[in-house]
Design a protein around this nucleic acid. Structure first.
Length: 488
RNA sequence: GGCGGCGUCGCCAAGUGGUAAGGCAGAGGACUGCAAAUCCUCCAUCGCCGGUUCGACUCCGGCCGCCGCCUCCA
């Protein structure tokens, strides 16, 4: 029953034990809002959303925080390029983030703190580190963390200081005591955003904001800290050094990092220029398909993005959504009321997800259930027990999809607005008499009109109904219990 | 150079000391006025070479290939 979780620091699975039983303090490194996020970023958002959902499903009171980095070199540069202020850039892409992640079914976090709203806390943290001699300011107003003074440095990412020193790059303009030291506070250059500080006007370094926001919104020791694998070093290693240096306490009990989304076998990244924004991908594939695809590999493994892989995901997903809608249709035709989820299937799902959030295995369970439900539905002369079983199967399937956030409604936004005039016209033309002018009613009348035609062996009319509806994007299906429709 | 990961059916992808989930694609059959869906059946011995073991895809060693981090990056 315990959840096993792979911890980056120990490089193995351990039992998940939150600091306070029943409660989870969970932080995910969120977006830097300077551009459209790419499909690789989306993987992190979706995967962590699913982990959060599973922990909640397993009874934990989860407090989930995901920051918005709204001050940073990239934002400043972007603003300069576009002749806007950094605030405007941050505002634009923050809205973009919420909008697009919402399309993918990512629930908003409990708190989305912004770096710029935590300057006092950041300054306080830096002061604490200076008091402890773990940080120092320079004549030009920068403040650096003294890496060599923090003995556990490197434990998270599995490297040692001496190895690092050889590879460390030194920017001649920096006044570091040691090349490994990293910036906690940067003196601002003319024209850049700045805040007053004991060291002069400046802005926070990258790593410090996360630590300050975690301390503010979750506490000095948290249960889970997540991010992409590329954040392990130096970002998370540095965060750990800052926090433990300042508090003397453990910072994070379980570090988790998702693998990369690759494109043609190589990491997708802004710097390589081979990235696909979520915008590009959603132009070709539905939100649900994208979400399903992103969950189709274990979160720590690489996942290769390609049109073929997305297309295969779309086909697979269709099998699932067809089962959902067609089973619902069958139950409606049979007049069976809703069932309730089956514990044994939920348990199989839990077993998969409890094992380090293995969404691929969970999806495997879902497809086994799909086959099972299809088999139940294929039964020719269902008795009461068969009907109840089918209803329960559907309820179970819906529950499992919901746990992964695979909500068919993600693909139906806007579909309900208005009735296709062509559809109404066709109904009138062929003599169907809808009870009201809704899509549902018109289709129902057409199905009845067609049934009448079939009864008279007027297959020309019957096929015309199927044919025209097909052109309009509806598929009619004749089942043992009547005719149903679905979108093509 | 240092550190780490990966290599499973045509493709994607789980798993792991006792003879390999699931999806896509494919083959055959059933159902069917048409169509779609669905059902049934079939479809891998796990990069290579050694070793440990009653038994390895799973553990150990070597080799080959691919990828990541070490610099902003999910």
């Amino acid at each position: 029953m315990t959840i096993r979780i792979h911890s980056t620091a120990s490089r193995g699975k351990v039992d998940f034990e939150p600091l306070e039983p029943g409660r989870v303090l969970f932080y995910n490194c969120g977006p830097t809002v300077y551009d459209h996020f790419h499909i690789g970023n989306a993987r992190n958002f979706v995967v962590m959303d699913v982990i959060r959902r599973h922990l909640r499903h397993r009874g934990f009171d989860v407090r989930f925080v995901q920051n918005i980095t709204d001050i940073d070199d990239k934002i400043i540069n972007r603003a300069r390029e576009e002749g806007k202020t950094p605030q405007e850039i941050a505002q634009t892409y923050t809205e973009y983030y919420f909008n697009r992640s919402g399309l993918l079914g990512v629930e908003p976090a409990d708190v989305h703190p912004r770096a710029t709203e935590h300057i006092p806390q950041i300054i306080g943290l830096v002061e604490r580190l200076i008091e402890r001699d773990l940080a120092y300011s320079t004549p030009s107003g920068d403040v650096y963390f003294r890496v060599r003074e923090f003995k556990p440095y490197g434990e998270l990412s599995g490297r040692n200081i001496d190895d690092l020193r050889e590879g460390a790059r030194v920017d001649p303009s920096e006044e570091k005591e040691d090349p490994l030291d990293f910036a906690l506070w940067k003196a601002s250059k003319p024209g850049e955003p700045q805040w007053d500080s004991p060291w002069g006007p400046g802005r926070p370094g990258w790593h410090i904001e996360c630590t300050a926001m975690i301390h503010t919104h979750l506490g000095e020791t948290i249960d889970i800290h997540a991010g992409g694998s590329d954040l392990i070093f130096p970002h998370h290693e540095n965060e750990r050094a800052q926090s433990m240096g300042a508090t003397g306490q453990e910072y994070v009990r379980h570090w988790i990092h998702n693998g990369f989304l690759n494109i043609e076998g190589e990491k997708m990244s802004k710097s390589l220029g081979n990235f696909r924004t979520i915008e590009d991908v959603l132009a070709e594939f539905s939100p649900l398909t994208v979400r399903f695809f992103l969950l189709s590999a274990h979160y720590r493994n690489p996942l290769d993005f390609s049109r073929e892989n997305l297309a295969a995901a779309a086909t697979a997903l269709r099998r699932l959504t067809d089962c959902l809608t067609e089973t619902a249709n069958t139950l409606r035709l049979l007049g069976v009321e809703d069932g309730s989820p089956e514990a044994e299937w939920i348990a199989k799902y839990d077993e998969a997800m409890d094992d380090d959030f293995n969404s691929q295995r969970a999806i495997g369970v879902i497809f086994e259930l799909v086959a099972d439900v299809n088999e139940r539905r294929a039964k020719r002369d269902p008795d009461d027990s068969d009907r109840a079983s089918l209803a329960n199967g559907l309820a179970t399937l819906r529950t499992l999809c919901d746990l992964l956030g695979l909500d068919p409604a993600l693909d139906q936004r806007g579909d309900s607005s208005g009735v296709n005039p062509e559809l109404a016209a066709f109904a009138e033309e062929i003599g169907a008499t809808p009870s009201e002018q809704t899509e549902e009613a018109i289709l129902q009348s057409l199905i009845e009109r067609r049934a009448a035609a079939r009864k008279e062996r007027d297959f020309a009319t019957a096929d015309a109904v199927r044919g025209r509806l097909g052109e309009m994007g509806y598929i009619l299906q004749d089942t043992a219990h009547g005719t149903t429709w679905k979108r093509g």
